[in-house]
Design a binder for these strands. Structure first.
Lengths: 144, 144
DNA sequence: ACTAATTAATTGTTATACTAATAATATACA
DNA sequence: TGTATATTATTAGTATAACAATTAATTAGT
């Protein structure tokens, strides 16, 4: 099933991603945040004060998705939106103290899950090849 | 950003999967079927006459998801559900002639997209390593 | 045979993603 | 200046997915 150069590669990759997300979700369940919300929060923490458009690009999500995730993060008081006086169409986004606290608590835990659980027993060389295949697939798609 | 053994590997994988799905969706848009529906239809075509529970396992999706995808495929008259006389809780699923026709038309097109576009320029050896990394991640998750 | 436990499928809720459409504002250019 | 175009964010609609709860039917245990 996995020995041809065909869509089974895609299905297998896609199913693995689902497994990873499910696994991560289960492991951070007590923190009341999903992996997608985590990604957005983390990107914002690295770029405090940007607008939604810029955050969408950093998080590699489209704008409607970011709008909705931000709604959730705002409800949880992890971020806040301030009106941009220079451009009244847009908001400037900030991570709150609560958001920073969560980020600092959760960051090492997630790193540990990756390092000690998901990537255990995979060599640096294989990971390098793995990455190069992903890069190549992305390039191929972009060129098409 | 991609040089540490951490969650960036997961984000990169996940974003690549999204790019592949988006690319495939765009390429098969005229056929009025999504990649997920395609997966279910294909699995059914390989196992005609099974029930939803079994199909969910083959397609690596949970039962509610399969129920909903089958609803769509049934609306499009690509599959049909017959009552199982031996077990009145379950249905037996069949691909229709229209479903078979679509499958035979689309199968080579999707194979070609993979072979000629997405996987172009990736060596068999690298693909083997790539697969082995996915397998290892899946094993690691299952053991945790 | 009867009750309890299990199973197949469905439904409900929430989250994510994509597309398209819209509102409000900003910019470009004639 | 005034109009057309572009941009930021939101909303609506559809699809996918996870999880919990429910319904109907079957199987197990006594």
């Amino acid at each position: 099933m996995l020995d041809t150069r065909d869509e089974s590669i895609g299905l297998f990759t896609s199913n693995t991603v689902k497994n990873i997300i499910r696994f991560l979700s289960a492991n951070i369940k007590n923190f009341d945040i999903t992996p997608e919300q985590w990604t957005v929060l983390k990107r914002l923490s690295e770029n405090d004060g940007i607008n939604q458009k810029e955050l969408a690009i950093k998080a590699e999500k489209d704008q409607p998705t970011v709008t909705r995730i931000l709604d959730i993060l705002e409800r949880k008081e992890l971020i806040l939106k301030k009106k941009n006086k220079d451009d009244r169409r847009s908001f400037i986004l900030f991570i709150t103290d609560k958001g920073i606290a969560l980020k600092e608590e959760l960051s090492p835990i997630i790193e540990e899950i990756w390092e000690a659980k998901i990537l255990t027993g995979i060599s640096e060389e294989d990971l390098k090849v793995y990455r190069s295949v992903l890069i190549k697939m992305n390039e191929n798609i972009e060129r098409s």
